[in-house]
Design a protein around this nucleic acid. Sequence first.
RNA 1: GCUGUUAUAGCUCAGUGGUAGAGCACUUCCUUGGUAAGGAAGAGGUCCGGGGUUCAAGUCCCCGUAACAGCUCCA
Length: 649
Amino acid sequence: MIKVTLPDGSVRQYPKGSSSMDVALSISEGLARNVLAAKVNGQIVEANRAIETDVNIQLLTWNDDDGKAAFWHTSAHLLAYALETLYPNVKFGTGPAIERGFYYDVDFGDYKFSEADFAKVEAKMLELARQKYPNVRKEMPKKEAVAFFEAKSDPYKLELLEGLADGTITFYETGNYTDLCAGPHIVDTSPIKAVKITSVAGAYWRANEKNKMLTRVYGITFPKKSDLDDYLLAFEEAKKRDHRKLGRELDLFYFSESVGMGLPLWAPKGAALRENLIQFLRKIQTRAGYQHVSTPHIGKKELYITSGHYAKYGQDSFQPIHTPEENEEFFLKPMNCPHHCEIYNAKPHSYKELPIKYAEFGTVYRYEQSGELHGLTRVRGFTQDDAHIYCRPDQLKAEFLKVVDLVNFVYSNLGFSEFQTQISLRDPHNQEKYLGTDEMWNMAESAIIEATRERGMKTTTKEGEAAFYGPKLDFMVRDAIGRKWQIGTIQVDYMMPENFDLKYMGSDNETHRPVMIHRALFGSMERFIALLIESTGGNFPLWLAPEPIRILPISDKYNDYAQTIMRQIMDATDLVVDIDERDEKISRKIRDAEVNKIPYMLIVGEKEQAEGKVSPRRKGQGDLGGMSVADFITHFQGEIKGAITQFNA
RNA sequence: GCUGUUAUAGCUCAGUGGUAGAGCACUUCCUUGGUAAGGAAGAGGUCCGGGGUUCAAGUCCCCGUAACAGCUCCA
């Protein structure tokens, strides 16, 4: 007998060789029906794998991410099985489960797999799933594995095998389909009841652009048809929050082919939104001890040679502009740090002055590959809420933590509670990509790791994601359909102070090298606003709304009264107020204001004019009843005060 | 940059090789109104650009441009 410990701590006894499925069956048949895989002593395995020793078991169902992963992993095999049946001679790359569904990378030879094929593949997958094929795990010596794929003349699987040690090779058989695979899988194919092939796109073999491009077929499957319907419906709903769509609908920004791709044009409403965000942050940064600076949009080539950016990105930048006579070369600035370092270097500094924090809403230009451009989230001209903190090495951790706190403050006020944090380190196997000494890197990386640990932050760590001059702590949020974007970043840099020969005079009357922290909280105004649009669906908090108040006169007889009200509000506050003077009925004006997502409508007609009042209507709430202008202003300002917490530096 | 898809009025989109369409928006007129679309009339087109096939191209083919999805990249 073996002892099985369940997550609630209960211990049960089973005959040796029992499986997780047996455990599930002993609890309830319903549970057994829902079990997709199991976590046995922390390792995820098939639910029917025999257990020989005492173990901890967690049964995994559709409610567990790992359960879904097993389900979708099997679905990927099912996809491959269907493709192999329908398109003889296809070769397979890799086919993992992903966050939402799965894909398989396929070499179709000369065949162009397209959307027209989707329905056929879906039908075949469902047909195969219904056969209730068991997923049979097989361990195999490497020699045998190689022979199998040589017989199949499958170059991709053979290449994958090269990287595997003998004795670790496992295969899974599903019907007539056999794949090199580490598993785990669901017990058989029958739970797969709904299938959707979602898209097809190119993907480089082994994620290397020098390799051949395979065809990546994406799909998603569910245990219930209604789950698929719900998923597709939710996806359609999410697409309505796309910032590119809302940007046009709310008249925020545009692109023009004549201006150039990736160069956003901010319309008045968008510019107002942007300005509100800048004002908010400028005020907080000033309180946090930042000094705002302003630097030009270009800089001489030599500046970027000094910083190291020229060697790294010179060829992949917008190419230099030249002066007509002297033929000097100037680059559009791709980042603000070199300019800020020059401000630092403009005069000598004492240790008593540090930390020095230069902030700038600095507009930069980067040549992004054409295929990368994406609405406002990836553009070629954008404004960073950039700042550089010059501090003594002994101040580094404290300063880093202050920035972390600032990020938390700003995001919480903007409703971004779901952000993720990632520590981006250098790739230990590819160190020539980076500048600086091991000592510098170790100091910088440990500063970030210690600081995040000190705050108890949940971070993920990624090697190879660092900037070439230093490691980073990145803050990421998801867009409407779940894609992750980096917004904030905090970077520790020992390199740039070296390159620019930055100094300060220490208490020992010797010169010392400061450490630099590069940081941006929004990242770029463009990307941040894009994500703000998607997270709010265009219903911005009152204090950010580009048009917070619109006065709606009942008829043109009350336009003059509306003007009086507008002036009263604008005199008492610095708010933007508009009047809808169109020759339309009030219900129409209300509808249009609702559609335009205007937070406050002020309805004025005969009654209001007679009583010297306004009738506010809050978007989404309806009529608030008549009140005086003074009462409305109090009400309005109260809502803003309630929305922003006080920042204490 | 790579693979694929798409491009028709300001927006959303129909359009079968044979006279360019709808809804919304816009303009004018009527209407002067009370909490989510009042009525009528009008104007608006390089069918993305260039080339080709054809008696005839918005429609078929090629090249380019841009957008979209994904890959790769991201100071």
